[in-house]
């Protein structure tokens, strides 16, 4: 399922910041949190929980932890608490986070990083 943003398109406000989300380009306005930029771009889930249920940013004030995404390789980042910057690489998470540098373990790993 994909749905356009659940928010109205915003009027132009000058320069945009350019990032990627799962490889696809996504823009933000200066001052946006990552959660705002993602919500402005799409109405889809920004994460699937460890039980596989779809979630996206919820409280917008850092208390619910539903907005967790991977930012420049750092998993479980609270998207509502981080300001968008040009060139950021964002990825939706599926299930529990990975461990980037622990690759040598005999893994039944579902790590995505």
């Amino acid at each position: 399922m994909t749905i356009d943003s659940r928010f109205l398109p915003r009027p132009d406000a000058g320069a945009l910041l350019h990032m990627t989300l799962d490889g696809a380009p996504i823009t933000a306005r200066a001052g946006d949190t990552l959660a705002a930029a993602i919500l402005a771009a799409s109405g889809d889930a920004s994460r699937h929980s460890t039980m596989g249920t779809p979630r996206t940013a919820y409280c917008m004030m850092g208390v619910c932890f539903d907005c967790l995404i991977e930012v420049d390789g750092q998993p479980n980042t609270q998207a509502c608490m981080v300001a968008a910057r040009d060139g950021m690489v964002l990825a939706r998470q599926n299930g529990a986070r990975g461990l980037r540098k622990l690759s040598s373990t005999p893994a039944q790993s579902n790590a995505d990083g």
């Binding site: 915003r10 109405g43 779809p54």
Partner: peptide, 19 residues
């Protein structure tokens, strides 16, 4: 996704002019 506290939506209005 799509369910959100009203105050959270208001934060988006204040910080990102998202309606």
């Amino acid at each position: 996704p799509g369910v959100m506290p009203a105050g959270a939506a208001q934060i988006l209005m204040k910080t990102a002019q998202l309606l």
